[in-house]
Design a protein around this nucleic acid. Structure first.
Length: 386
RNA sequence: GUGGGUGUAGUUCAGUGGUUAGAGCGCCAGAUUGUGGCUCUGGAAGUCGUGGGUUCAACUCCCAUCACCCACC
């Protein structure tokens, strides 16, 4: 018997920009609505590093990620289920998305063996052996209780020959079917994941295959793994026409501010990325003018905020000189303030994008971003290889 | 005053006759895209206390001297 009290997952496409492929919508979940396009902060271990759930709310985060592999290893899904699922465990009453552990299969290469059945890991904490497959991943994700869960997929590397990419893609499709068959939890949405390496043909083929399986939403995986940005954009261009308009599209692991806008331009609704919080902990922040390495000596006596006009706690109360001092001194609060700023920066960027879409002015918004944002340096990765 | 010890990179120290003297930390910079990351990579930096001497060759051995430390008068 169905639990009528659990609202079903639903995506509402609110508006499509008349001047581009950019979309604005709303994800309706058991824990409330998420306005898209959305950047989802990553909280691998049931915490966005250095942040409390209350602070995440103050920043305006609508939804956060957690990771099946990491939480299964420690502290274990049983404990989290007993604690009221991830929502209860981490005191976060807004939506949560869990990644399946598929990406860990990829990033822990060398410590694992993949077969059709699943993956055998040597876990990175104590080296002991563990198995994970589509059914196991879904079972754990049901216990964790996120609003959106991801299929257990096979991610191929960059560069990658077409045969390897095709094998990974086809296995991803078979595993997607198995995830769907295994998934039972009411109200929780299971997203399939598009793979296909760096072949436009395979990407389109993967999107079609997933569409036929009829998932409530679709991840786009296997991108932003080191390829030039132009390659990633070509893959998006190739697969997007095959994606059902009525379902949300989630570009996994992206990214930098410019990549977010390029994704939105091409019709992506959801993103996640560790970049903002990771670079924050190493003393780098994002601003409308580009990246600012506040750790650098040039900011030693700079009493201005990280970014003029930013409404975040760091910018409202503290100077670059102070935050640099904290970072240099290894003080935790330095990492916290940079994280708060970067998360708030991306939140504001996405809000701006959404407003522009609703006014059919997304291309102009994107142009205005590039006019100010300094793309020199790291954010140019791979472009010279084009 | 006597005896002993120590003086080498910003700092703490390795280096005891043989190429352009090393390390940790610090400093400077770079990296970071579904987090194995308070991480990783690279760089700058020393007339080896000073002055003599021995030697083909001295951070290294000898003498003097200065500074600091310890012990004893």
């Amino acid at each position: 018997m169905r639990e009528a009290s659990v609202p079903a997952f639903r995506f509402e496409l609110t508006h499509q920009c008349a001047a581009s492929g950019a979309r604005a919508g709303v994800l309706h979940t058991p824990h409330g609505a998420v306005e898209t396009p959305v950047y989802m902060p990553v909280g691998t271990q049931a915490v966005v590093k250095a942040m409390t759930s209350r602070e995440m709310k103050e920043i305006g985060a609508q939804i956060v990620l957690a990771n099946t592999y990491h939480l299964h290893l420690r502290p274990g899904a049983d404990l989290i289920r007993k604690a009221g699922g991830l929502h209860g465990f981490m005191a976060w009453d807004r939506p949560i998305l869990t990644d399946s552990g598929g990406f860990q299969v990829f990033s822990l290469a060398g410590l694992r063996k993949i077969t059709e059945e699943g993956v055998r890991f040597r876990n990175h904490l104590d080296g002991s052996q563990m198995d994970m497959g589509p059914e196991e991943s879904v079972r754990i994700q049901e216990m964790l209780g996120a609003d959106i869960i991801m299929a257990f997929d096979v991610c191929s590397a960059w560069p990658c020959d077409e045969t390897t990419a095709r094998d990974a893609m086809e296995r991803t499709h078979r595993w997607a079917m198995r995830c769907k068959a295994a998934h039972q939890r009411n109200g929780q949405a299971l997203f399939g994941i598009v793979q296909g390496g760096f072949s436009e043909t395979l990407r389109a083929q993967s999107a079609r295959a997933l569409r036929e399986m009829d998932f409530p939403g679709y991840g786009i995986g296997g991108l932003s793994v080191g390829e030039p940005k132009g390659v990633m954009y070509r893959m998006l261009d190739a697969l997007m026409p095959e994606m059902p308009a009525a379902k949300p599209r989630y570009l996994m692991g992206v990214g930098t501010p410019d990549c977010l806008l390029e994704g939105i331009l091409r019709g992506v609704d959801m993103f996640d990325c560790v970049l903002a919080t990771r670079i924050a902990r190493n003393g780098t922040v994002l601003t409308g003018e580009g990246r600012l390495v506040v750790r650098n000596a040039r900011y030693k006596e700079d009493l201005r905020p990280l970014e003029e006009g930013c409404d975040c706690e760091a910018c409202q109360h503290y100077s670059r000189a102070y935050i640099r001092h904290l970072i240099k001194a290894g003080e935790i609060t330095g990492a916290r303030l940079c994280s708060i700023h970067n998360l708030r920066y991306l939140e504001r960027l996405m809000q701006g994008a959404r407003q522009a879409i609703l006014k059919d002015r997304f291309p102009a918004f994107r142009e205005a971003f590039y006019d100010r944002f300094d793309m020199r340096g790291a954010f140019n990765r791979g472009e010279e290889m084009e």
